[in-house]
């Protein structure tokens, strides 16, 4: 599930700020299971104190916290110059909340309930964005595939491939994040721009088509299915 290019999770420290003790424990166990080093606190004040003492690579911040609300915690730590990537956890996922969270300085937003793999994919994505921001949009390359978004041109092993607009956007997203897992929800947000989850298997249908289009005799399938999560372009 991890790509070779990602740093080992053992080196990565995650702060979990969640007041639901059971969920917090489950999260800590699952993240530790993936190899992260996890510290958990149960309220906003403790989060601010902890962040003043130690460095973290990412923060999972519940939106609904006793004493100081999650978004307020976020505003305060951003005001203090803490640049650590923050993923907000929310029970409701209302658009207004989402916008408010992102404006307060969140890097991403995940609606409870989520699967640990979905969360892992998003943690990876925010870390990647921090380490290599603003990837060149004009031409993306991974393995033997090259995507030129602006010129709407795709080649595999030097041969041109015809793609529809949505297929090209999907491929560009996969290639840009080659080696990392992108969940279906992340793809829905990034490629289709929906802030809701469609009831049909729209992502899978497009991946299937993309695989057919990219298929070449003697060459392997460049897209890996990560069961229960999403897809990954093999780097």
């Amino acid at each position: 599930m991890q790509s070779p290019s990602d740093p080992s999770p053992a080196a990565l420290r995650i702060l979990v700020v969640e007041d639901d003790a059971q969920l917090s424990a489950l999260l800590a166990r699952q993240l530790s299971g993936l190899g992260y080093t996890v510290e958990a606190v149960s309220d906003g004040r403790a989060a601010i104190t902890t962040l003043g003492k130690a460095q973290f690579d990412a923060i999972l911040l519940d939106r609904l916290l006793p004493a100081i609300e999650g978004v307020e915690v976020l505003r305060r730590i951003r005001a203090e110059g803490v640049e650590t990537p923050v993923i907000l956890l929310t029970a409701l996922g209302l658009t207004q909340e989402r916008v408010e969270g992102l404006e307060a300085g969140a890097d991403d937003y995940i609606v409870k309930p989520f699967e640990i793999d979905e969360l892992n994919a998003r943690i990876r994505a925010v870390l990647r964005r921090r380490s290599a921001p603003a990837a060149d949009n004009a031409t993306l390359t991974a393995g033997d595939v090259t995507v030129s978004v602006l010129r709407h041109r795709v080649t595999r092993a030097g041969k041109p491939i015809e793609l529809q607009k949505t297929e090209l956007k999907l491929l560009a997203e996969l290639v840009r994040e080659a080696g990392s897992v992108l969940s279906r929800k992340m793809l829905i947000e990034r490629v289709w721009g929906y802030d809701f989850v469609p009831t049909t298997n729209i992502v899978d249908v497009h991946i299937l088509k993309l695989r057919q289009r990219l298929e070449m005799p003697g060459l392997p399938d460049p897209i890996a299915t990560v069961r229960g999560v999403g897809y990954m372009f093999r780097a």
Partner: peptide
């Protein structure tokens, strides 16, 4: 909202 909060969280755990 309470249903969402109080039921979704255990459901999410169940799902997980």
């Amino acid at each position: 909202n309470d249903i969402a909060h109080d039921l979704r969280t255990p459901l999410a755990r169940l799902h997980g």
